[in-house]
């Protein structure tokens, strides 16, 4: 008689896997990558390649030689961290800085907590913020987009829209940006200065729509963040249009779209329940606007996400999902 396999129920599985989820997110990043390659040329390819290689090799070395566990580099999570890190860097960054960021992101941001799923902070953002604080000058000199003009090596650098607004806000003439439809259009298409992946809001939204369609992420976090940013900046805008720029500008500028769709929704570092996700999203939105408008940095999405990452375990303790029914009162 042949021996049968015994296991407790259920005996079937959805076929979903960590790998599938990671590669779906990577797939969703392709439009943003293509737009970035269009505007920044070979820089996009080089920076992404260095960051990805740095992340994957670091993870492999740590798992094989330090932790002595089977390696998980094939699940795509290190790959994803590398791509997201690259998307958060300016295109003209020196290769060794990128490598340093990648190593820090994986070694400190992920593996020191025990690997995938145990990390408290989003590794890519840990890497980026580490670089931002260590190399502020290099990290804030943004190359001008050089569409169809890739051979032009000395395209020079320029400020991001948010930096321009920050400057104008101090002078009290922010309203010059409000009417410029062209600028909003540029920000949606991606023809602005900024880090590699964040420039095109449209490409990122396409990726986000794909992720929600494939049920990799839910709408809760992105909607909560964007909603909060719109509400908060509208209040400021109507209060004083000369000092505060309009909400659309905030939504489409800087790293908000990238952060909202791809970084804040990171599985391991976001809350587990819908209620928790909304609170988390609102928190990110508020902190982002506070940093952008009142802080000394022009951009605050990455800090906002990291701060809310730290709050996530607490949210998980207090925000329980809606139970099926209220427990029976003691008769």
């Amino acid at each position: 008689m042949n021996q049968f396999v015994i296991s407790p129920s259920p005996h079937i599985h959805s076929g979903d896997s960590v790998q599938k989820n990671m590669y779906r997110v990577l797939f969703a990043l392709i439009p943003a990558f293509l737009v970035s390659a269009l505007f920044f040329g070979w820089d996009t390819w080089i920076v992404t390649a260095i960051a990805v290689l740095g992340c994957v090799i670091t993870e492999y070395v740590i798992q094989v030689y330090l932790m002595k566990v089977p390696t998980t580099i094939m699940d795509g999570s290190a790959l994803l961290t590398g791509v997201l890190l690259a998307f958060n860097l300016p295109g003209n960054l020196a290769w060794w800085i990128i490598l340093l960021g990648a190593i820090f992101a994986i070694a400190v941001g992920k593996m020191s907590f025990g690997g995938l799923g145990s990390n408290v902070f989003n590794p890519a953002l840990v890497g980026r913020v580490f670089l931002l604080i260590s190399f502020p000058a290099q990290m804030t000199s943004w190359p001008r987009p050089k569409m169809f003009n890739w051979t032009d090596v000395d395209a020079g650098t320029g400020a991001t829209p948010l930096e321009l607004v920050k400057q104008a806000s101090k002078e009290g003439n922010v309203d010059q940006f409000t009417d410029s439809v062209g600028m909003i259009f540029n920000m949606i298409s991606g023809d602005v200065g900024g880090s590699l992946g964040e420039v095109s809001a449209l490409a990122l939204i396409v990726g986000g729509a794909y992720l929600i369609w494939k049920k990799v992420i839910t709408w809760h976090i992105p909607v909560a963040i964007l909603g909060t940013v719109i509400v908060f900046t509208s209040i400021l805008y109507f209060y004083d249009p000369t000092r505060y720029v309009d909400p659309f500008f905030h939504v489409f500028s800087g790293g908000l779209m990238l952060g909202t769709i791809f970084m804040a929704t990171d599985y391991a570092t976001s809350p587990m329940t819908y209620k928790g996700m909304i609170i988390y999203g609102v928190g990110i939105g508020v902190i982002t606007v506070l940093i952008r408008v009142f802080g000394s940095y022009p951009e605050g999405v990455s800090f906002a996400i990291l701060i809310m990452n730290a709050v996530t375990p607490l949210i998980n303790v207090y925000m329980k999902p809606q139970r099926f029914a209220q427990p029976l009162k003691t008769v």
Binding site: V5, S7, H13, S17, V18, N21, T72, D75, S77, G114, G115, L116, G117, S118, Y267, A268, T269, S270, P271, M272, T273
Partner: peptide, 13 residues
């Protein structure tokens, strides 16, 4: 018939 090998919880909820 067989289950696949268990991995870390990635907290995907």
């Amino acid at each position: 018939a067989r289950r696949k090998e268990m991995q870390n919880c990635i907290r995907c909820c």
